[in-house]
Design a protein around this nucleic acid. Sequence first.
DNA 1: TTGACTTTACTAATTACATTAGTTAAAATA
DNA 2: TATTTTAACTAATGTAATTAGTAAAGTCAA
Lengths: 192, 192
Amino acid sequence: MRITKSDVIQTAADIADKNGLSNVSLKAVAESLNIRAPSLYNHIDSLEALLREIAHNGMKTMNERMMQAAIGKIGDDAIKSVGITYLNYMIEHPGIYETIQWATWHGTEETGKIFDNYLSLLKTLALSCNFNPMNIDEILNLLTGVLHGYTTLQLRYAFTKPDEVKTALSSALDTVLAGLHQKYDQHEKKLL
Amino acid sequence: MRITKSDVIQTAADIADKNGLSNVSLKAVAESLNIRAPSLYNHIDSLEALLREIAHNGMKTMNERMMQAAIGKIGDDAIKSVGITYLNYMIEHPGIYETIQWATWHGTEETGKIFDNYLSLLKTLALSCNFNPMNIDEILNLLTGVLHGYTTLQLRYAFTKPDEVKTALSSALDTVLAGLHQKYDQHEKKLL
DNA sequence: TTGACTTTACTAATTACATTAGTTAAAATA
DNA sequence: TATTTTAACTAATGTAATTAGTAAAGTCAA
């Protein structure tokens, strides 16, 4: 009968996924948990703080999954694998992803730190692509931008035709990586 | 002393740009206009509808500016010019852009139509790049994705270092276009 | 086991909005 | 000028977030 902070976040995240971010209210969360709305304040600071927790949990879960997806892979393969994982998460959890976008505008330092973990993973993988390390930041900016923008804009088709969208994302990443290789590949190996 | 629907939308958009989307309320809009909140219902249907109007107005304005920016240009040049215009608008109107993103999730058919106008412009320009028309949809998906994702993620830097961000966007588009040309350029000219 | 302490639930009350209903005065129109 | 429409108003309602104060149930040391 006792409820934990984690229960509250999970329940709110489920509501977001099922009914959209705009239907996440303390009232709705409390009803799902069979408690009264004010009782939620024993676990959270405010509705805004709860939304941030949903976003942070989601971002951390995505980071874990993307790390898993990258294990045993390097280079373009690894990056495409991470990209597909990113898209999969968004398809499975559109409400959480919507909350993550909300947190882009209403985030805290914590939000930035979790995002940095994501950048850090992508950076490692990008460095395994034989790009000139001098340009790694530009490369990261483009890769993260493509992933975020492409998946967001394709989300509406992703529910009805998930396989097509995944294939298309893979192909889009191929195109971007081709451009990146053309521009940033190290042509000379450093000699010892 | 009389207020028009256009005034209401403008005022709400200004509040969004200055204080963020979450601070747009009928109360705040009414106070800015020196009228009472219920009077706003003479001009709008609801708060949600007002937010959609902000988004639609913003999208239309962006479309117009992008069309202007494309005049007299073709190919990669035109696309980069449009991209920079897109970024400029977002820097000038972050609150409206936030509302446009909100409308991505809460939009109507109207929202889709305005977005289609944008797609239509980009399609014309992409076709001027000598890409194989058979692949135009994939190409558009990638271009719109990069534009949306890249600009959104760079927005936080765009206020302090606008010039760097604009140069970087131009370079990122170069990279993507290089990948697209490598993959989708028409190698054979059709003979008459 | 008992007694202090903490946790987590509750009810009641407050506040902030969005929204509706009903009304009125000014503006537009015929 | 008479009529109709527009756009403002006040008053009232409903919903949701939040705060304050309280009580029950769990935790843990003596």
